[in-house]
Write a protein that binds this DNA or RNA. Structure first.
Lengths: 103, 103
DNA sequence: TTGAATGTTCGATAATAATCGAACTATCAT
DNA sequence: ATGATAGTTCGATTATTATCGAACATTCAA
């Protein structure tokens, strides 16, 4: 049975959950790596993070509506849901990605 | 001894903490009430909330750099730190306040 | 088919946060 | 002074989240 990753529909995406997901430094760093729009192998989002912790964070981002997860072989390709986020929360992503990582 | 409310300097305000503070529905609702820029009596930010819980949330917003708290008599006047937020995270507040409360 | 690699799930634990009553301080009105 | 009011602090409890090892499933390479 292949792996399946549910993604919330736009109506199910709430601002509070998006903000919460982005408020974790680990996840914020992941989102920055996805800023170009390219698909990134999940393992490259946090190479030094324990596997189960990585799964936790990628799942949090996905369930919040921030990312898509596409399985391919043994890997997961992660992308930003820019279209959804820009439509639903115009400017939010741009504002957040404009920040330098530390601030 | 009069009450004193420490406010973080701009350099001490981090995006992650701001996002976290805003990710709570109660606090997000408070920020919406402050959107006009007017000072709001703290009690009016959540009239039905227990006092100690209200103190907790107003303190979280203040320590995150989102609001100012100015004591006057027995009351506290709360304002949005729009200047700081717009300078440090341009567009963030506008984006968030543009949203309808439920989404 | 065997073994290695990737990711998930489960379970336990630690850390953090939310909630709120009670006691307290400060302030104001009378 | 006395009492009422607003807000804080403290402490306890509950809820949520983060972390991560171990066992497991899936996929791929040899």
């Amino acid at each position: 049975m292949p792996r399946v990753y549910p993604h919330p529909t736009p109506d199910d995406v709430s601002l509070a959950k998006v903000l919460f997901a982005l408020s974790d430094p680990n996840r914020l760093a992941m989102v920055r790596l996805l800023a170009t729009g390219a698909s990134v192998n999940s393992i490259d989002l946090a190479p030094d993070m324990p596997k189960s912790t990585l799964t936790h964070h990628t799942g949090t981002l996905r369930k919040a509506g921030i990312t898509t997860t596409r399985p391919e072989g043994r890997n997961c390709w992660i992308t930003l849901r820019r279209d959804l986020l820009d439509t639903k929360f115009p400017g939010l992503l741009d504002t957040i990605l404009r920040q330098v990582p530390d601030t």
